[in-house]
């Protein structure tokens, strides 16, 4: 970053007239206006380019966050500008943290993460390894596995809920099981055993594995062929040994990024849960991840925005802590110093 800025400054000095605009130390202070504009009006230009974006981001990310923290201290039903009388201090936080449904939603997220992160990691890495070594039809296989990325969770949920895992006889899964003489299963409404997890996890696995396969393929391309040659000279057999000692360690940076992305995306899960599990009667009491819980709390019938905001703040804190812990753990940012 600093290197780039320095280089830019060096380059600008060659431009005629640039010198005059650069403030020389000790030759009298330039006016406030001149200082605000910066040398060559660069400050002005900087804000002309970055300003619209930065203001929008501030308005639609930072302002709502601050407002939400404020709302979280009020009993704000159906209102976004509560009066002083509705101030409830930390009550919203207390009721959130003692609410079994909220804690249950965190548990749902954890369980979902335990399923989806290793499954997606393993499948996308396996796909990348197999596709990478192909000598023919590589582009075809890559396209096939990547194509589901274009599908929305809503469409995928329609296919999973009403065709593959339809609980009636014509559902594909029940049909196939029927060929082996198995009974029909009501995949989404059976809670014991919780078959709905199979439906939820496979949707996301299908939809996102190709995306992470692309990341792994890029990582594989970056590994120097010389490493493999050296390993072969040292007697490492192709296959498991090479993977264990060369490929896998070389993919460390990609793996860290993939795991971080998988966890944060699992945390944001909403679309497939909502579309798979809710029906004309509403959403069942089980399998509510944080976002589904917040949706029904803050935007449900009683629009409890104060309570919903408190929940959002708690989630933000959890994410902040988790991110720092993960970054420390994986040693992110170390090389930048």
């Amino acid at each position: 970053m600093t290197g780039v800025t320095g280089a830019a400054e060096g380059a600008v000095k060659d431009v005629p007239g640039a010198r005059a605009a650069v403030v020389p130390g000790g030759f009298g202070r330039p006016s406030l206006g001149a200082r605000l504009l910066g040398p060559q009006r660069r400050n002005l230009w900087f804000w002309a380019f970055v300003g619209p974006f930065a203001i929008g981001l501030g308005l639609f990310t930072y302002v709502p966050l601050v407002w939400s923290v404020y709302l979280s201290f009020f009993d704000a039903h159906n209102t976004v500008s509560p009066t002083g009388e509705e101030f409830v201090g930390l009550d919203n936080y207390a009721s959130m943290l003692t609410d079994d449904a909220f804690l249950g939603s965190l548990g749902t997220f954890l369980l979902f993460t335990v399923f989806i992160v290793p499954a997606t990691y393993a499948l996308s890495l396996a796909l990348a390894l197999m596709v990478n070594r192909l000598r023919f039809a590589q582009a075809f296989f890559r396209s096939v596995f990547f194509l589901p990325t274009a599908c929305s969770y809503v469409v995928a949920a329609v296919i999973w809920k009403l065709s593959i895992f339809n609980g009636v006889r014509f559902g594909l899964a029940n049909t196939v099981l029927g060929w082996f003489g198995a009974d029909q299963t009501a995949w989404l409404s059976t809670t014991d055993p919780p078959w709905y997890w199979l439906v939820i996890v496979t949707v996301r696995l299908w939809l996102q594995a190709g995306f992470y396969m692309i990341l792994f393929l890029a990582g594989l391309q970056r590994i120097s062929p010389q490493l493999y040659e050296a390993a072969a000279v040292d007697g490492a057999r192709p296959g498991w040994q090479t993977f264990r000692h060369i490929t896998f360690p070389q993919l460390r940076a990609t793996s860290v990024a993939v795991v971080l992305l998988l966890v944060i995306n699992a945390f944001q899960a909403f679309d497939e849960f909502y579309n798979l599990l809710s029906d004309a009667r509403g959403y069942p009491p089980y399998a509510r991840p944080p976002l589904v819980y917040l949706y029904y709390t803050a935007l449900g019938r009683d629009q409890n925005l104060g309570l919903g905001s408190a929940g959002a703040v708690i989630l933000a804190l959890i994410i902040a802590v988790a991110t720092v812990v993960q970054a420390r753990w994986f040693g992110l940012g170390r090389k930048e110093d």
Binding site: V50, F53, F60, P64, W67, F267, G308, A312, I319
Partner: peptide, 25 residues
């Protein structure tokens, strides 16, 4: 740099956190 990190920081703030406040706004 300050501006850049302020922008980058919002990557850490997932929709799970902002959707209620954004809806309010």
């Amino acid at each position: 740099n300050v501006v850049f990190y302020a922008i980058l920081g919002t990557l850490m703030v997932p929709a799970a956190v902002t959707f209620v406040p954004s809806f309010v706004l």
